[in-house]
């Protein structure tokens, strides 16, 4: 199939970017989207031109490294599919395709379609963990966890941290990403002792990173390649609210010897 691509080219974080048009005359429907870009890049290198930079790694839809906006949709037109798992059979001969990086102030552009998602790591560092050191754990079967709860926690834990939710949101909010981690851990007995502090601290860091607020547009849910639902945002909001109103913040405890 013959395709025309409009791709956002930007040399570096501070450079001025622009859309540049490329033609791919011979894409196969069995190619993955990234393989089609590989072919384009090989031709650009042959001509001595700078190939298009994009992040990718596992190409199996699990590492979360790839992703850009394809025709206005993060990860492209196919539901529940990362960019690397999108195949050219989702397009047809003669299509024009627009490729843009994730657009969010909290994800500065590194080059072309690659962005810096370090803000996500800092949100996790603020509370997206269970404070347990290596070696102190009890037997794995000591605390039974109902299958329903374990499955629900797994639904939330399936997040790959790709950033599509932020890119899809009109406010560039990271609510779905943060809620997925808060919910995963807060649902499990192991995460319960820190549940309120976790919700408070992660939300505080999310705000600090400059992500927008949630206005229930639900675009995040539609864009999520792992189909993580907005119900987790409701769960996080509940823990955040309860935690803010009734939970005693750390450091104001009763003292002691």
């Amino acid at each position: 199939m013959k395709l025309k691509l409009h791709i956002w080219r930007q040399k570096g974080p501070k450079a001025q970017g622009k859309m540049v048009t490329y033609e791919v005359p011979d894409a196969s429907e069995h190619m993955s989207f990234l393989e089609m870009l590989d072919v384009l890049n090989e031709r650009l290198i042959e001509k001595g031109e700078d190939p298009v930079a994009f992040d990718h790694d596992c190409r199996e839809g699990i590492c979360g490294m790839c992703g850009f906006v394809i025709n206005g949709l993060p990860h492209g037109p196919k539901q529940a599919t990362t960019t690397c798992q999108l195949h050219m059979r989702s397009f047809k001969d003669g299509d024009e395709i627009t490729l843009e990086p994730w657009r969010a102030g909290s994800f500065p552009i590194v080059k072309d379609l690659a962005v810096d998602r370090g803000a996500f790591d800092r949100v996790i560092a603020a509370g997206g963990f269970v404070s347990v050191n290596t070696g102190a754990a009890q037997d794995g079967n000591a605390i039974p966890i109902s299958k329903t709860i374990a499955d629900l926690a797994m639904d939330a834990a399936a997040c790959i941290g790709c950033g599509a939710c932020v890119a899809a949101c009109p406010n560039a909010a990271a609510m779905l990403f943060v809620a997925a981690k808060v919910s995963h851990l807060n649902l499990l007995p192991q995460g319960k002792p820190e549940k309120y502090a976790r919700a408070r601290n992660m939300v505080a860091q999310m705000d600090k990173e400059g992500f927008g607020n949630c206005t229930n547009a639900r675009e995040c849910e539609a864009a999520c390649p792992k189909t993580i639902g907005v119900e987790f945002i409701a769960r996080m909001n509940r823990d955040f609210l309860t935690g803010s109103l009734f939970d005693r913040p750390e450091g104001t405890g009763g003292g002691g010897a």
Binding site: F129, V130, V132, T134, G135, A136, A137, Q138, D139, G140, I143, A150, D151, A153, M154, A157, H184, L185, L188, Q190, G191
Partner: peptide
């Protein structure tokens, strides 16, 4: 045991 304690949803 360690992974369960960390909240790995096995």
């Amino acid at each position: 045991d360690q992974c369960v304690a960390q909240g790995v949803p096995f």
